[in-house]
Design a protein around this nucleic acid. Structure first.
Lengths: 174, 174
DNA sequence: CCGAAGAAGTTGAACTTTCAATCCTTAGCC
DNA sequence: GGCTAAGGATTGAAAGTTCAACTTCTTCGG
């Protein structure tokens, strides 16, 4: 795997190391807070919440399993297990797909809708508390810029399996 | 659980929603790439690698379990399972602690040292490829600034929060 | 110096994620 | 038409994480 000699490695400088660690820790800690708040406030895991967000935002409150998996960037199998758990709790239901008998629809139940409507306000507050209320407008702009650059590069590298230019629309806060 | 009236919620604007989702996706995708590269190139998981890094950086290549858990910000139980797996593979070993018979040392084995030395160069390349080579010096500065601000706020909340209604999980941050 | 309180670490059970295999259906192709 | 390849989705087992006990040892007030 190492096609480079040892002497060639461009090690990270002190500052780079610190940034890399802080970068990872920022996400870990921030996500831990938001996830804990969400769970404590609504009984929903981040995964539950994200599924419900996408269903809420979609036409007729339903999506094909693969569409949902793509939107969430989850593997189909992981999502299938997640949906099984959520179905057992009554948050979503599965429906057969008439156009393609292999496929299935995931539909939002009234219970699921109630759950996300009750969870959303305090979740948004959480997100503001850890991010938007912390940074200045200028910092938020810089962060947006950084995200674009990094994502552009990553998307570019991953262009092998692209296959779809149809992003149905921007979803709400996940 | 919502102590605020519905009308009071400060929902996220379009731009804020986009930034929040990009922010999460940046980390998810970036970490996926780095983790996959690491695993493919060396057979080490990110967890394995981090344990080995901390041991390598410590005096005499050994640490108390709780010290290590604290450095990694992992729960002791999670680390204990992790160490059990790594010990089985010969990457680390456990030693009794003379000063405190309850405690244990984790020590780096020659195999563990060899593993991290072989893994590190290509891992650093990975990190450069997805982050440091992508951003300009100015962007890196901005990112460092953002990380500091967010982490400062999170650390501050964590140290004040000890009495909240949630589970008394991770306190005593550094 | 005894006994309670608490810290260090491990363990087992429940839950989540990953991985490979499977089932069924659609799409090609000759 | 019929045979094979490929796609949509689920399943079960293995690996990893979380949560709550539990064991052992230290600390400390009385």
């Amino acid at each position: 795997m190492s096609s480079n000699l040892e002497g060639m490695t461009r090690w990270l400088s002190e500052r780079e190391q610190r940034l890399w660690r802080d970068f990872l820790r920022m996400h870990t800690d921030l996500w831990a807070v938001v996830g804990r708040d969400l769970q404590a406030g609504s009984g929903l895991s981040p995964g539950d919440f994200e599924v419900l967000v996408h269903l809420t935002d979609s036409a007729e409150h339903r999506l094909r399993v693969t569409e949902l998996a793509h939107a969430m960037r989850w593997e189909r199998s992981r999502l299938s297990h997640q949906l099984a758990r959520m179905e057992k709790r009554g948050l979503i239901a599965r429906r057969n797909c008439p156009e393609d008998a292999r496929g299935a629809f995931v539909v939002l139940t009234p219970e699921g809708l109630a759950a996300i409507e009750s969870a959303a306000p305090s979740h948004v507050e959480s997100v503001r508390r850890v991010l938007f209320d912390v940074l200045t407008p200028r910092q938020l702009e810089s962060l947006a810029d950084v995200c674009s650059s990094v994502l552009a590069r990553l998307d570019q590298s991953a262009s092998v399996d692209s296959g779809s230019s149809t992003v149905p629309g921007m979803k709400g806060s996940c």
